[in-house]
Design a protein around this nucleic acid. Structure first.
Lengths: 254, 254
DNA sequence: GCTCATATGATTGAATATCGGACAAAAAGA
DNA sequence: TCTTTTTGTCCGATATTCAATCATATGAGC
């Protein structure tokens, strides 16, 4: 039961969180046995944990199938409010997003992925590729991820590069660590990341880091879209300027 | 320890969630003893639960003070993605919000409060009153709340009215249950809620319910702003039309 | 409608994880 | 420096956990 776990970790709570987390996938409503299977927990245990979550109003049941309630947003709101996301970051994103008629996203580092923290949809109410608050991206194959990777503290970067198995998403994904490293150096030098066709065929992402005055990395802001939109050199530069401005404004208050 | 708790509820998990929840307040970073005090849990227990959360990367510590990481957004994202919030609702809100140059919010019912689920900031990057995803509003004193209250299933409404202590926020807050009930009837009849000066002096809120075809309540969309902006009858009607259109679009996919 | 397969609910008791008081160590204030 | 407060550790008592079991409910296939 306790392989390498220190004694300062509560197994029950761990399992409970496992149950809660299993709802972050695609499945909207799940029965107790489905949950047990997905979390690899004993069914009786799962049942009690699920009932506890229902009691706390994080889950609700219809026809013996459980699904998340909006309650979880209260906790998420704690994070967002603490970082002034709703109050300041989102409006900033929106104002810049209106300016260039593109959807802009703000991500932070969550373990070994970039996680969407705020997002302003662009003008056309299309694509957005389904990414929303809480979605995560791999670091090595996306613009937002590389902007983060490039501006991490060195030791953190090393850790992340070591851990990452550099999954391949398209024929163009950079999987060679050396090649990735040299791109990170370039990214650092020019202060922006540009990644084409590496995560999704036909998609380009342009991103810049959000840095505190002292150089500490906060996250990254970026634009993602079909390749043709990024081919005009002048337009790309204009977007880059907007992203840099945007990053600076965010850095001032997060 | 177990006052009325059924045996199907895991106390440890309950306590753990209590610890996690206590970060949804204002305090950004807390020490273990602060957390113990706030949650009213034994310090040793609190410690183990906090360490568990740190192990799971929901919390991180700097100088013995713990704060939320973006990790919680993964779970919140599960809810948001499941309801197509980021993919569809937010873009819809944005397009209508652009049309009337007002910030529009989408809320759902969370126990006995209305909880912000999606929000599109208006043109001016001001006020927004600090409300963001995860913030909650009282049902009886706000337009969004009353739109929900008025279109609840009858039994649910009764429950909510019974529980609610009808807190008073300004001199104008409706606290008399009878008066509230008659306003709810009016709200239902005209299909929108209009609440002035009841939650914050000088602030008006206009909201409409989001209903499935079968009449099932999903949530509400609304606009909040300084009173003068709502005085022009024609403009108000125009906004109302936009809100209704918006609600209809959302109802089609949530 | 009937049968089989599977999902769910309830109960049990042995195993054990959790609790929380007491004490020690370390910071933080005075 | 000396308090005061916070934090870390230990351990016996106790409450919780969870595998195994059976009973019931649900659904699929015939």
């Amino acid at each position: 039961m306790n392989d390498f776990n220190e004694k300062d970790i509560s197994m029950t709570f761990l399992k409970g969180m496992k149950v809660l987390e299993c709802f972050s996938g695609i499945d909207r409503a799940m029965s107790i046995s489905e949950i047990a299977k997905k979390t690899d927990l004993n069914r009786t245990v799962t049942r009690r944990l699920v009932l506890t979550l229902e009691h706390l109003k994080y889950l609700e049941s219809t026809d013996r199938r459980y699904s998340l309630t909006p309650r979880i947003l209260r906790v998420a709101g704690g994070f967002l409010q603490g970082h002034d996301i709703g109050k300041h970051v989102t409006p900033i994103l929106k104002s810049f997003s209106d300016k260039i008629k593109e959807s802009i996203s703000f991500v932070m580092l969550d373990e070994d992925r970039a996680i969407y923290v705020a997002h302003s949809p662009g003008d056309q109410r299309l694509i957005t590729q389904g990414f929303t608050i809480g979605s995560t991206l791999p670091l090595h194959a996306t613009g937002l991820g590389r902007a983060i990777l490039a501006f991490c503290p060195e030791d953190r970067q090393k850790e992340l590069l070591k851990k990452s198995p550099c999954a391949s998403y398209t024929n163009n994904t950079t999987v060679d660590p050396e090649k990735l490293k040299s791109d990170l150096t370039l990214t650092r030098a020019r202060s922006y990341a540009l990644v084409i066709n590496e995560f999704e065929e036909g998609v380009t992402s342009l991103a810049v880091p959000v840095l505190h005055q002292d150089g500490e990395l906060i996250g990254a802001v970026g634009i993602v879209g079909p390749n043709p939109r990024f081919q005009d050199e002048k337009k790309r530069q204009e977007r880059l300027n907007v992203l840099h401005e945007c990053a600076e404004e965010i850095a001032m208050l997060v």
